[in-house]
Amino acid sequence: MSDLSQSFGHALNLLLRFDSNLWEIVALSFRVSLSAVMIATVLGLPIAAALAIKNFPGHGAVRILVDTLMAMPPVVIGLVVYLLLSRAGPLGIFGLLYTPSAMIIAQSLLITPIIVALGLQVFVPLWAKFGDQFRLFNTTTRQNLFTLVHEGRHQLLTVWLAGFGRAIAEIGAVMMVGGNIDHYTRVMTTAIALETSKGNLEMAMALGLVLMLMALAINILAHSFSRLQQSPN
């Protein structure tokens, strides 16, 4: 118990002192995971909306594939991205392995299926509600797509947060493709793993608490923003 309370004190101390090392790590975590969730959103939402709107051959297969990919362990994604980005791999010429870019790519791949699968759960009932009306208005697919996203924006925020949560909490992929390089590719989770392996459990726990506090802050921000939007007029 005293270990935990000590860690908590340590965490607060680190945060309030604006420890530059810590903030560097926090900033990179956010930069990587926010970029990844943005890419995953731009990629995933149109796919989800298309799956909800259109009934094309192979529709069922795509949905099964998406659900399966959602269960993909981060290390496997990490391994795939590692093999792709390694100098000996097909994308080796870009020299992206062991860079923040590689971590963004890996996390994007990791959370796109989540955005698609959860987005689908938002879009399917919306389309059931609006589909006929849109057909009567004779609006274009593009217009329909944007309208669905707009109508589902509050639920999509939750989807988005789920994706972000998975990205920022993930370690397997970033460790493998980022390499946990000090001052360069070290993020919260890899730093926690490192401190744990060094036996600095207190520091590791403090980092863990920082991660949780950050997640809390993001969620409060997002939900209050959503409430602000939702209130009539």
């Binding site: 930069r31 990587v32 926010l34 970029s35 943005m38 890419i39 731009v42 990629l43 149109p46 870009f94 020299g95 992206l96 392995l97 062991y98 860079t99 923040p100 870019s101 963004i104 360069y184 392996s197």
Partner: peptide, 29 residues
Amino acid sequence: KYIITLLSIFCLNATSYAAGPLALGTTTT
């Protein structure tokens, strides 16, 4: 436009492997 959006998100937030820093492969000890 869509592809440009994707790439710009990526490029804005990513740093490429600039020549200069030396990649040293080494051990935990």
